[in-house]
Design a protein around this nucleic acid. Structure first.
Lengths: 109, 109
DNA sequence: CCTCGAGCATACCTTTAGGTAGGTTCTATC
DNA sequence: GATAGAACCTACCTAAAGGTATGCTCGAGG
């Protein structure tokens, strides 16, 4: 397969999932609409400030939608847009590659 | 649900291609063994220092091999390892996704 | 009426990736 | 003998991503 004529779209993708936590966020939101607190629990170790930042970024890029259910106490959840879905699809091979090679990679760090 | 039980392989992959230039470097080395100066020319805008750093990182992670031809003036080239090849394969869908959505993404930045 | 927790905001500090600007070694070529 | 060019190295600087800490609103449960 000759790919030398096509430009590299990786920079585009990395502009979206380039953050430290964005891939993990996408991974956990992928299963369906997820509440803020649930994302926070799933992505262990992330601070609230950073999580909000990343979520806002993803919303701004049309990868996620923020749905505010207008309740008190606050009830908000985030879900993938169709655009976000297509991104997640493109990420699957890389995700699987990472799982298969996790041991090899972590031992060389 | 525990974080370490259901890991997402994306963090592993991003540990390797996470840098600003690494995807582009991989993209240009993929066509075959490439000399340092050629990589530098292909990846326009990168400084020598950073390029060397990134190449060293990729070598340290067994994605690339550095081959020194023991000449003066220096003659060195970099090539993908089989491990690196498998990574590149996993990157193709993401690369294509990026190309298809380049316009949409860049306009929202 | 006091606290708790949801989903934020805001101020401040630290870490680090990346950029700039120089130097080095050795030979071939002018 | 001056210069150029290959592939590095070293020191220093900056910007921004990420982390820490705290404060906010509002209503339900005690």
């Amino acid at each position: 397969m000759d790919r030398s004529d096509t430009p590299c779209g990786l920079d585009v993708a990395l502009a979206i999932i380039g953050g430290k936590w964005k891939p993990l966020i996408l991974y956990h939101v992928q299963s369906g609409p997820t509440r803020f607190a649930d994302v926070k629990r799933s992505v262990a170790g992330i601070s609230e400030k950073v999580l909000i930042q990343q979520l806002r970024d993803l919303v701004a890029m049309n990868v996620l939608v923020r749905r505010d259910h207008q309740r008190v106490p606050p009830m908000v959840d985030y879900a993938l847009t169709p655009f976000g879905e297509s991104l997640v699809q493109a990420l699957i091979p890389l995700c699987e590659w990472g799982n298969q090679n996790r041991a090899k990679v972590t031992e060389t760090l």
